[in-house]
């Protein structure tokens, strides 16, 4: 029996201490140990992007990262953005532009968008499509997702790169 490993992680500003088996994906840790089920698990091999979260401010696939590797890290999941009554500006843009249907890909789309905005992706359709091409959506045909992201970029402006509730993480590793 392989022993569990103690880890300390900060997720959405709250610190958790847990013991995890080394093979536990960060995605499963978030969902099953912390009950933060907003992070979705799709393909489980890094293709679909549904499990994208921010690890020390950078977008990563939580199905390709082990929880034990996140020891000491700061994590932001979709639960760290807004609440149903108080959506973040990006979430609001997704709602206004009807950028989701079934919603399965949405958490990954949102987290990837935060990173592409903070890394200075130009606010053009081509650049946004390229930057989001690692996130698959089977409902929308992407049109409204691209519109929502462009609207959010325009609203944030050149100074808004690091917006969206990631104040702690954006500074940590940006």
């Amino acid at each position: 029996m392989i022993p569990k490993v103690p880890i300390t992680v900060t997720v959405n500003g709250r610190t958790y201490e847990r013991e995890v088996p080394p093979r536990l994906h960060l995605a499963d840790f978030l969902r099953e140990d912390l009950h933060l089920t907003g992070t979705h698990v799709g393909c489980e091999h890094g293709i679909c992007g549904a499990c994208t979260i921010l690890l020390n401010g950078d977008s990563v696939r939580s199905c390709l990262t082990f929880a034990v590797q996140a020891n000491g890290a700061e994590i932001t999941t979709v639960e760290g953005l807004g609440t149903p009554d108080d959506l973040s500006p990006l979430q609001q843009a997704f709602r206004e532009h009807h950028a989701l249907q079934c919603g399965f890909c949405t958490p990954g789309m949102l987290m990837s968008t935060i990173d592409l905005m903070q890394k200075g992706t130009p606010a053009t359709e081509e650049a946004v499509r390229g930057a989001l091409s690692g996130n698959l959506c089977r409902c929308t045909g992407y049109e409204n997702i691209v519109r929502a992201v462009l609207a959010a970029m325009e609203a944030a402006g050149p100074e808004g790169k690091a917006a969206e509730g990631t104040e702690n993480e954006a500074g940590a590793n940006g």
Partner: peptide
């Protein structure tokens, strides 16, 4: 090379 989330890691 890949996508942003892969490039980050």
């Amino acid at each position: 090379v890949a996508h942003l989330a892969i490039r980050n890691r």
